[in-house]
Design a protein around this nucleic acid. Structure first.
Lengths: 334, 334
DNA sequence: CTGTTAGCGCGTTCAC
DNA sequence: GTGAACGCGCTAACAG
């Protein structure tokens, strides 16, 4: 390992000067010396020891990313976007998965804090129950100069990228009503998961505004099996007049699709179906899912920009990200 | 920030003693002192500064993971498994995406080396062209005590988790022949990507052993669009006697499925189709894909165990991971 | 067993 | 502009 000291010695300058030219300092260094240091560094193949820099500076060139699970394509896309943005800034990314365990989330923030990461992006979505532990941990991090940004859920005083879950749900409801549907069911996911609840609320609220009957809401898990089981439960209790089902995310919708197929319910002929997110790897499903598109990778990138500042979203407010209704074959005109 | 020194002072012991009890040292500490230190640490809410530990120890409690892309479910699953294994050992994971750019891969290894990570798991699969830069970078890392493990491709002298691409391809060919198919086409992916080539080779080799005609191999990208375009190209030049198509991974198979659908070719009635990997989020596709299942998350976990040692795969050899043929609706009996 | 002390590699004030 | 010296928080000999 070649150290800064060796570079300095070879260039015939002091450690301080070498440090100033090789690592972004505001101080000026004479062209002659600068040149010599740069050459020495190149010849020796010098690479700064990031751990030493982190200790000296009190902060590492790393951004921490907390997601629910990488296997969930929603979070994979977010992570991908966040990584691209981090790379653009010369930062590396440290990832942790919570698997929806609040305690694990707090522990991850603590770990990232101990790592002295520059910023933390929290992408696992909050549940309704308050978790003071998280807030406290984040506060400690910020007190030390750490930056934070949230995706998909807001916490008082913290910058956030906020997908328009309510508005998206509402727009979707209006679009489906526009196709002639009047009686809906919602596979609503976990009642205490805010993302799920907001999508459901937006959807039902819009129906109410249109003077349409209240949809039946079937709770369940937020993943494929959750959608599958909820659809099953819905069929078990009878569809009644329902002609269209809204699963609050695409992954659930795919699970529902499978359940409906198993029971011989044809989509969209017997029943229309819609999801939310417009997950790319799911787009080849038949029938193609009607959904609300969210620019997930872009959201991940904006979150790190938001945390670090200087990006397009410089302030430290909340960036609302609109969703776009995409009508596809899974929902038919009545 | 509470430092070790404050803890030591409050407990009335030396810095060294405090260090010994709080951070895993082999040295023994008397019960009385140990107790006092632990209480002091708890009362103060002490958390070690990982950057300082990394500098002092010369290595961070971090494992680096290099993948092609997190959006590719194959790598997402690998990453998930690797993260779980790392967590089990109390390590955090730093991830980088290469997007199949060899230069980027080398740069990522250099970055991870600068981070003094304990181990690097390389999951992006090698291409045929040799890249001395990578080997050199890895060698520098190992010289410093860094551990390395590969997934999906071997490099001389390095431990690796090796999925049975050739054998899996061969087993699949035999299974499909068992269904009565005689004339095949292969959507072979990029010719210089070893994973793709080995799967193709295994498949064609088995056909040869069975005395069946050589399949037509259509090259292309290794992703969804690659499969889509290759299938299209295949149809454009005419299917001839071909009754079954093998796409060298599931993601490509899904793309091919879409292309076939667009052209009005029914799967499996007009044409049978098979993939490779058994990607979980794709399992709900209709028709369900015949494929070769690889235990991806387990592979990711074994890779970190392999790199770090002490796991089930203690040696530093190559762990072969068998694939299992899964016959589903996309391939029919002739 | 426990305490003292010297680094780990680099950033940064402070004099020159 | 440039250099000398101290400190970041912790680990690991080395003494006792």
């Amino acid at each position: 390992m070649v150290t800064l000291e060796e570079v300095a010695r070879r260039a015939g300058v002091s450690l301080a000067t070498a440090s100033r030219v090789l690592n972004g300092s505001t101080r000026k260094v004479g062209d002659a010396l600068r040149e010599r240091v740069e050459r020495a560094a190149a010849e020796l193949g010098y690479r700064p020891d990031v751990t030493a820099q982190a200790l000296a500076r009190g902060s590492a060139d790393v951004v921490g990313l907390v997601v629910h699970s990488l296997t969930d394509p929603y979070f994979a896309a977010l992570a991908e976007g966040a990584m691209a943005a981090a790379e653009r800034r010369g930062l590396t990314v440290m990832i942790g998965a919570t698997h929806r365990d609040p305690a694990r989330e707090v522990a991850l923030v603590a770990t990232l804090r101990a790592q002295r990461v520059r910023a933390i992006v929290l992408a696992g979505s909050r549940t309704a129950r308050s978790r003071p532990g998280l807030a406290a941990e984040l506060e400690l991090f910020r007190a030390r100069g750490g930056r934070v940004a949230l995706v998909g859920q807001e916490l008082p005083g913290l910058p956030a990228v906020a997908p328009a879950n309510r508005e998206g749900g509402a727009a979707l409801a209006r679009a489906l009503a526009g196709l002639g549907h009047r009686h809906f069911a919602v596979l609503g996911g976990p009642p205490d998961l805010l993302t799920a609840r907001h999508r459901t609320d937006g959807f039902t609220g819009a129906l109410r505004d249109l003077g349409l009957p209240e949809p039946r809401v079937v709770p369940g898990g937020f993943d494929r099996d959750g959608g599958h089981d909820a659809a099953r439960a819905l069929l078990d209790t009878g569809l009644g007049e329902v002609t269209c089902v809204f699963a609050v995310n695409d992954v659930m919708a795919v699970g529902a699709l499978a359940a409906l197929r198993e029971r011989g319910v044809a989509v969209p002929d017997d029943l229309s179906l819609a999801g939310f997110d417009d997950i790319a790897p799911l787009r080849d499903h038949v029938p193609a899912l009607t959904t609300v598109r969210l620019p997930l990778d872009e959201m991940g990138g904006r979150a790190v920009d938001l945390a670090l500042g200087g990006g397009p979203d410089d302030g430290s407010g909340v960036v609302a990200v609109p969703g776009e209704v995409v009508l596809r074959a899974s929902a038919r005109r009545l």
